[in-house]
Nucleic acid binder design. Structure first.
Length: 619
DNA sequence: TTAGGGTTAG
């Protein structure tokens, strides 16, 4: 029966003024209910609602049941306002009605807070008690707003109402505590669950991955396989863990696992494929990332962004920009978002493309109406400041609608130091950073960044007393400089190098190789930046010939050239940011030695407990 | 008598 014919077939059944027999009313409600199942949009639902109002008695339980259905349908058509109107028109609400409305709010971005308010109202009114359906919805809303204290209250209510053993409720709790970063509480709920589902495992694994506990996440994944088959959600978390560890061997294993175990649906899923792209990019294999991207039948914005970010963070700015051109081209016609522009600005930043960076920043605002966020400002300020346009960078910081964070101030300070600008200005900037909460957070728990930069400012102005004061302050506060470190995996063993490091057993050969590299680079006309502080005493044999500044990555590259067969790609992981100078030299070494060299920066180093990495030769 | 859980990048 079509809803368009609603009034005619049902009209003869409109209840008379006198009370209808129970069976007639029952049939009538039943017929409206079956019509409700066929509603496909709000206009049909509104007709049905009007008809229900006209032809039923509001106090009948069957009518209340119908209103519940109308409420549910209006929220499923995303008309939460209408759902609220229906709700407000009813005097006594069933648990189902409360639950439906709470759920509608929990799923609506702009009403997440209301979900919790509604739940409180439900308790206050006391006309119906929360049940096992209520809590998962409320918890979802709490998780979304990172409402830890609200969530704790709800947790108490769950125990009080006796739903502590419900698997859906517990999954909601794991998700909530996981979202708030309370991994121990999430784990406690997980461990104490009388029954677990696939979602329980996925939620716990996801929480661990999101907060950087990659090892534990992979450990849990292994345990999970004893009782459940992983699904697409699981595999995305596993791929993120591999990406976080920067372990291409693990990531490649996960890719193979995916292809072996799953049907086309899971393996071809856009979200899973995007995770694969991200994993390959973060593990340094842009070739594989591109291969996955090219093989995708369907792509979304995130697929493009993942590639752009991948190229950008590896210093391959031209390819990042080419991908952007392709995505906005008429054929693809994908509209970029704020993340796309972060990628483009990072690309420009890594390579010092100041004008391009300015163009993208303007394009983002002008052509795509995207409000620049702190991250965009961070990139552009760093870019223009590094290029020496300190005044322009400071003006930009002053014009920002939000408060600059310590990272931005540090970009300015760094640029001031390099340019040897006024000490007063540097001191002023340093005052904005030192001791701030953001600085502590943004520099891995120490605020060495600003102190080190400031001591460099004083050193460049030959104010040695002030250098001493800063160093003393640092040692008094127990602050140590976080050294740059590069790592390379060969035959499953990770070798780490610091700048000017001479601790490796192969140091002698490494420095000889560096000399070879240096000579080859000079032979093609490369002139190292002499203004950089030379590490002339770095070699064991006291040779002072090697005058290039020894970034840790160059040591790792030399080590790779010695120990890997010719033309084997060399993959380096670095804990800090890779500078433009490094990108340029790496490109040249790569050209001269006819070897692919990839340097991935900002990697959190990982060491397996037995001191090894199971690195297979997938490069 | 109605229904339910877990995602997107820096």
């Amino acid at each position: 029966m079509s809803i368009g014919l609603l009034v005619h077939p049902l009209s003869p059944h409109i209840p008379p003024a006198s009370s209808p027999s129970a069976s007639t009313a029952g049939n009538h409600h039943q017929r409206i209910l079956s019509l409700a199942e066929t509603c496909s949009d709000m206009s049909q639902l509104k007709q049905l609602h009007a008809f229900t109002l006209r032809t039923t008695y509001p106090e009948e339980p069957a009518t209340l049941f119908l209103y519940g259905k109308i409420l549910q349908l209006s929220s499923s058509f995303s008309d939460v306002n209408y759902a609220f109107r229906v709700f407000d028109s009813i005097e006594n609400h069933s648990s189902f009605m409360w639950n439906t409305l709470i759920r509608a709010c929990a799923h609506d971005v702009s009403r997440k807070e209301e979900a919790f308010m509604l739940y409180r109202k439900m308790l206050e009114r006391g006309e119906s008690s929360p049940d096992k359906h209520t809590f998962p919805f409320v918890l979802k809303a709490c998780a979304y707003i990172f409402g830890f204290s609200e969530g704790k209250q709800v947790h108490c209510q769950i125990v009080k109402h006796g739903f502590g053993g419900d698997v859906y409720v517990n999954n909601g709790l794991i998700h909530l505590y996981g979202s708030c970063g309370c991994l121990d509480l999430a784990r406690k709920v997980f461990d104490e669950m009388p029954e677990r589902s696939l979602v329980s495992w996925n939620s716990m694994i996801d929480a661990l991955v999101r907060f950087g506990e990659y090892d534990s996440a992979l450990q849990l994944f292994r345990e999970m396989q004893r009782s459940f088959e992983p699904d697409g959600y699981t595999m995305q978390s596993v791929l993120s863990a591999c990406a976080g560890l920067g372990s291409l061997s693990l990531g490649t294993w996960a890719h193979a696992f995916l292809l072996r175990k799953y049907d086309v649906d899971v393996a071809m899923d856009v979200l899973v494929k995007n995770s694969l792209i991200e994993m390959y990019c973060k593990c340094g294999s842009l070739r594989m990332a591109e291969q996955v991207f090219q093989g995708m039948q369907k792509r979304d914005l995130a697929s493009w962004n993942a590639m752009i970010l991948g190229f950008a963070t590896h210093g391959r700015a031209e390819e990042a920009m080419n991908f952007f051109d392709r995505m906005v081209d008429k054929r693809e016609n994908v509209r970029p978002n704020s993340v796309t522009f972060v990628g483009l600005l990072i690309a420009c930043n890594h390579r010092g493309f100041v004008n391009k960076g300015r163009q993208y920043f303007d394009m983002m605002v002008r052509d795509y109406c995207i409000e620049p966020a702190l991250e965009h400002y961070g990139c552009i300020v760093d870019l223009i400041a590094r290029a020496g346009y300190i005044t322009e960078a400071i003006d930009m910081v002053m014009s920002m609608p939000m408060k600059p964070d310590a990272v931005i101030w540090r970009s300015l300070l760094d640029a001031c130091c390099k340019k040897g600008d006024s000490v007063e200005l540097s001191e002023e900037i340093a005052r904005n950073i030192i001791g701030t909460k953001e600085d502590n957070e943004s520099s891995n728990g120490n605020c060495s960044g600003a102190y080190v930069l400031l001591s460099r400012v004083y050193a460049s102005a030959s104010r040695w007393n002030d250098v001493g004061i800063v160093r003393k302050l640092m040692s008094e506060h127990g602050i140590r400089k976080e050294p740059g470190c590069s790592s390379i995996e060969i035959n499953g063993i990770s070798h780490e190098f610091f700048a000017g490091d001479t601790s490796h057993p192969q140091t002698k050969q490494i420095y000889q190789q560096l000399k070879v590299i240096d000579d080859r680079l000079r032979s093609i006309g490369y002139l190292p930046d002499r203004s950089q502080a030379p590490l002339v005493d770095a070699t064991n044999d006291g040779s002072k010939e090697y005058s290039l500044r020894l970034h840790s990555e160059r040591l790792a590259i030399a080590f790779g050239l010695i120990n890997l067969p010719p033309q084997t790609p060399i993959r380096i992981f670095k804990n800090l940011r890779v500078c433009n100078d490094c990108h340029e030299v790496t490109k040249l070494i790569s050209k001269v030695f006819n070897t692919e060299i990839i340097v991935r920066d900002r990697v959190r180093f990982h060491h397996f407990k037995d001191g090894s990495c199971s690195c297979l030769d997938y490069w």
